[in-house]
Design a protein around this nucleic acid. Structure first.
Lengths: 231, 231
DNA sequence: CCAAAAGTGTTGGGAATACACCCATGC
DNA sequence: GCATGGGTGTATTCCCAACACTTTTGG
């Protein structure tokens, strides 16, 4: 291999909220290096292939592609020593899976709560933490929750989803009002039936858009009225 | 070259505020493809080299390295057709240069206002726009202004810097109060002498830190008091 | 009627913009 | 003293967390 030419892999940080916890999809390495450690799904970039396509292709071995509601590039790691065998550049992607998806996983693959990561191979642990930070931030200023929530949901369910992804308690009351005012979610005509033991039926909501929308643009120092010119 | 091995280049989007405008450093191509178009500085990643190091090395031909006050990775472009000759992956970096720097540039290299970009080679135009968006956002929630401002400055000078980088008018009054309250800037004991024509001498300020600090973390849906657990 | 869950009204605090006004200097 | 630019005080607005209260169901 010429010196000015490099292997390149695409890695997917697949998040799903399962059982009120944010979990990440990992597979356990059976061979050195990092034998027994857990790694992100991914693999080599092929000729003529884009990185995003490549990430999707490797994830297809774990989850059905349509179940990936959102995929976005995170960052590229280039430490020459990140793989002890030979140099491999890695571009990480954030992939979000809606809770409806219950993919049948290969035997070496499992979900792990992001707050209790096992020993991870290579630099994958730090990549996962970086992905989690990105997700947390984007939940605050975009509608990215659509990729973690089912088609329709009650506010309580959505609160649990946000709480799991963000990592702290979330108020259903305020969540409803904020996301409604931002027009991120909207009520459907339907309601749930009460659970046993009673309780008022909940309105079912849905996300207004299933594509990423920035709802809270960074706007510090901007005057209230127009004025787009530099001065 | 094996099919599973790729050329990779690092590109630098170098921004500097010059003459009240945000400008980007470009060089004009003398040979096809895109002969006569303007391109970002950069070049091939070498064996054993990190991408950030590589970007810095290529930028060293244009500006003195210590003048680069901030360097951060933006994104990796992988369209197989982005270079018509052969496939090259490109990782773009955002590089900010303080206004003191007045580098002597090679003959084919020049500054261009980001609002009036010339015809750009490859996908460099879209990379520059993406870098500008990142800069604009980070000015709102980090202290990244330190990398565009001189060591000490008056609030008026800082307002001009922010206005140029963000692209809309900025109020000096509010800029001062916001950045002071966030402890991003602090007054020095020094003041400027009045310009001809009079006027009160201005306090000289400096940035409290010359490393990137997130001052305005995304905090929607977070309860006021503690509570770090998931529920 | 009571418990349980959902949803609304209201309050209060904090942050940011706008604007009026005061301060310090040169001429 | 007056023009010029720097800085502070204050009002207004907006967003959001908190919490009390109402609504709607099951038993």
């Amino acid at each position: 291999m010429p010196a000015d030419c490099f292997r390149h892999e695409a890695l997917g940080v697949v998040f799903q909220v399962r059982g009120s916890r944010l979990q990440v999809l990992l597979w356990q390495r059976a061979a050195p290096p990092f034998e027994g450690s857990w790694a992100l799904p991914g693999g080599q970039l092929l000729a003529g292939e884009r990185l995003g396509t490549s990430a999707g292709r490797y994830l297809a071995a774990k989850v059905d592609i349509p179940e990936i509601a959102h995929l976005e590039q995170l960052e590229t790691r280039s430490d020459p020593a990140r793989d002890p065998r030979e140099r491999v550049l890695a571009t990480a992607y954030l992939a979000l899976v809606t809770p409806g998806a219950r993919p049948r996983l290969p035997g070496d693959t499992a979900w792990h709560p992001v707050d209790e990561l096992p020993a991870c191979a290579f630099d994958h642990g730090s990549i996962i933490r970086s992905a989690r930070e990105r997700l947390r931030a984007k939940l605050s200023y975009t509608n990215i929750g659509f990729a973690l929530a089912p088609e329709t949901f009650t506010i309580s369910q959505l609160r649990d989803t946000y709480a799991a992804a963000i990592g702290h308690p979330v108020s259903a009351t305020n969540l409803q009002r904020i996301l409604t005012r931002r027009a991120v979610i909207e009520p459907t005509p339907d309601v749930t039936r009460s659970a046993r033991g009673g309780g008022r039926p909940a309105t079912l909501y849905r996300f207004a858009s299933r594509g990423l929308v920035v709802t809270n643009p960074f706007a510090a120092f901007r005057p209230r009225e127009a004025g787009t010119l530099t001065s």
